[in-house]
Amino acid sequence: MQRICVIGGSRYFGKLLVQRLRTAGHQVTVINRGSGRPPAGVEHLVVDRDDEAALLAALGPRTFDVVVDQVCYMPVQAAIAARVFAGRTRRYVMTSTIEVYDPATTALPPVPADTPVPEETVDPAAWPVDLELPWHDGAYLEAHYAEGKRQAEAVLARAGGFTFASVRSAHVLGGGTREFTGRLAHYTRRATTGEPVTVHARPLPTVFIHWAELAELLRWAATEADFAGPLNACSDGPLDVHALTAAIAAQTGREPRHQPATATTPASPFSFDRHYAMSNARAKELGFAFSHTADWLPDAVTEALAEAAVPTA
């Protein structure tokens, strides 16, 4: 049994992660602002993680084997966590994102379009940090989501006091109404109503992961693995937007309609004109076995169609 703290953990794959940790027999503490109660048997600390004094007071003398941070979006939050948890945990795992590799958001070393992007493309140990930027401005943070994640990783990677690992998640699908981004629903709605999907002229493939597989990988990263640094998390089998709409069409029985993206009509989610499909080779070498996107995408589409109360073909 390990003592594990989950920051966030009130929705989607974070909630499933908490359930799986508890089922595995670990002693789990969840920290959030009261947005959702954890399962029975899980300690719940209601506190704003951005309030350092309040977080310290809520934690008291508690120590943990592992902290899993589901809701670290900017370096200011990471700096608070680094101070609060230094000497309080031996391992700190942060949930990060594929978007750290998005070449539209920063200058990055070039990777050939047919080569999956490896972790070293963005090295948190060397990434510059600026805590003085207006990170607490919601509009600024939303517009700089990828950079906020890159700098948060950088702060924690240099913190000391614990081993740091980041899990860079691919685009997460599945889970029906729990898929709170609504991106798959964007496609299933259009597939069933006949509305066109807006796509780039030459869309490039990206990578995905099932919500339950991501929860399992985070459980593994927290309780079984001992790696440090970034780790890409994606199922095998990259897809471009045309392959995604074809998978949906296979269940709706309606041919997908596409229209070109323009300056005034932006492309739909998952239509990309830039390459940043990740490599999952490092996680495999460390012992994690990924599914193939084709194994679970049909069920994810079925869930999304069911939520819209539209019968499948």
Rank of each mutant, 00 (worst) to 15 (best):
H26D: 02
L184G: 01
V66A: 14
A243H: 07
H144M: 08
Q2T: 11
A228M: 02
G253K: 14
K284E: 03
Y101N: 15
V172H: 00
C72K: 09
H186S: 10
V310L: 12
P134W: 05
P311V: 11
D102Y: 07
P134T: 06
G253F: 13
L21S: 04
I248A: 15
V46C: 14
P260K: 14
S291H: 11
R274V: 13
L231Q: 07
G87H: 07
D273Y: 08
A40P: 13
L133W: 02
A81K: 03
A221H: 10
P116L: 06
A157T: 05
F227N: 00
P203E: 06
L131G: 03
Q2L: 13
W220P: 05
S268R: 13
F164I: 03
S268E: 14
S268A: 15
Q77L: 05
T312Q: 12
T265H: 15
A107V: 10
G9P: 09
H26R: 10
A81V: 02
R150M: 09
F13I: 01
T264H: 14
T89I: 06
P39M: 10
I98N: 09
Y101I: 10
E213K: 04
M94A: 14
A246F: 09
R219V: 11
G14R: 04
F272R: 15
Y12G: 05
G237N: 13
I98Y: 05
P256W: 13
F164C: 06
G176T: 03
S166P: 10
L231T: 07
P260R: 12
W135T: 01
A215L: 12
V155H: 04
Q27F: 05
V84A: 12
V310N: 09
T206L: 13
V122Y: 04
P112T: 04
N32S: 13
R168S: 00
P124K: 06
P266A: 15
L131I: 02
Y145C: 05
L218V: 01
I7T: 14
K15W: 02
D137Q: 05
R257Q: 15
A306L: 01
T115E: 10
R150E: 07
A221L: 15
P238N: 06
A57M: 10
E303R: 10
T252V: 12
E153Q: 11
G229I: 01
R178Q: 05
L141I: 06
A107S: 05
